[in-house]
């Protein structure tokens, strides 16, 4: 393990977050088992009050997870030169096989927590806690992922051993260069561009349709999910190239660096929020028939769809703007 301050910070935070999640999940289980809205008993009152605690915890979790996502990338980038052949975060993440899974779990738990908060938002507007079961089941789904993230991250950090000069011999005869993972992922530019444009257009159209006349809920949800994946692929295959103005630097991480005006932060933030909002619309759909949510869910879906479209449009605008001002010209 490397005693880097960033690593320590991530380590401590993930432990705290896990503790919080375990605590919330335990209360969640109790709520699932003992919940009885018709009862006037004190236990029911206590359980209802706990719902406030749990939603507070998940809200903080979402915020911390977002910062930790970026700090993780930042830290990976800042320690890359400790590893022979690593040029940026990509290289550091491939030092052992736990790097990318950690990142993936961070993104996944962020999305689930975001969805949970959308569900919570709807539930709080119904007068009879209509989504209480769904909400706490989702929490129980979230918890293992959070724990997995902590464990995988732990393995990742403990597996990091820097290649440093030892006193016995001068040169480490370096292994072959790392950091090829993203090159493999990179799709050829033209198909990627077409895919990106089509999926963005389709998602925004679906979002607008839902916003205007309330139709096509599952379509928007599915398209948001697809667009998320397509956008990440596009980021690797061509968007990053324009930002770096280099025809072969396929890296999704360096764009959060100062050299590129921190453009990665708004981009990923918009992409993540658009995706969470789009998916959330679909998640709410099965509960549309609950009596207390009849009018509430469509309104929330409309709001979410509108916000998702705004996020995706902004994302696409920033990307297009970066492509336009880039000195790199490709077809």
């Amino acid at each position: 393990m490397i005693l880097n301050p960033g690593i320590l910070a991530l380590f401590i935070t993930s432990l705290l977050i896990s503790l919080m999640t375990i605590y919330a999940a335990c209360h969640g289980i109790q709520i699932l088992r003992r919940w009885d809205i018709a009862s006037g008993s004190e236990l029911q009152l206590i359980l209802e009050r706990r719902t406030y605690l749990i939603s507070t915890i998940v809200t903080y979790f979402l915020a911390f997870q977002l910062v930790s996502l970026f700090l993780f990338i930042q830290t990976a980038d800042s320690i890359c030169h400790l590893f022979v052949g690593a040029m940026c975060a990509v290289g550091t993440l491939t030092v052992n096989s736990f790097g990318y899974p950690t990142l993936l779990l961070k993104v996944l738990t962020f999305i689930i927590a975001g969805l949970w908060l959308i569900l919570n938002y709807a539930d709080n507007r119904g007068y009879d806690y209509p989504l209480i079961r769904a909400k706490y089941l989702l929490l129980l789904i979230l918890a293992p992922f959070v724990l997995a993230e902590t464990v995988v991250q732990c393995f990742y950090f403990f597996g990091l051993t820097p290649d440093i000069i030892t006193s016995c011999c001068g040169t480490l005869y370096s292994q072959s260069a790392r950091g090829i993972a993203s090159e493999i992922l990179a799709l050829p530019v033209i198909p990627a561009k077409i895919l990106f444009s089509v999926s963005m257009l389709a998602t925004c159209a679906a979002g607008m349709r839902l916003f205007l006349n309330g139709k096509g809920v599952y379509r928007l949800a599915a398209l948001s999910g697809i667009t998320f994946v397509v956008s990440i692929i596009s980021m690797i295959s061509f968007i990053s190239l324009y930002i770096y103005e280099m025809p072969s630097h396929h890296c999704p991480f360096c764009i959060v660096q100062k050299e590129y005006g921190y453009v990665g932060y708004p981009l990923y933030l918009l992409l993540l929020s658009g995706t969470v909002l789009g998916l959330g619309v679909g998640l709410l759909q099965p509960f549309r028939n609950k009596k207390s949510l009849e009018h509430i869910i469509p309104a929330i879906q409309q709001k979410c769809a509108g916000a998702a479209v705004v996020a995706f449009v902004l994302f696409t605008s920033i990307v297009s703007w970066q492509i336009l001002v880039s000195s790199l010209k490709m077809l």
Partner: peptide, 12 residues
């Protein structure tokens, strides 16, 4: 100073 340091400090 860079952003990473501030984020680290925030987390600690």
């Amino acid at each position: 100073i860079d952003l990473g340091q501030v984020a680290t400090l925030f987390f600690l």
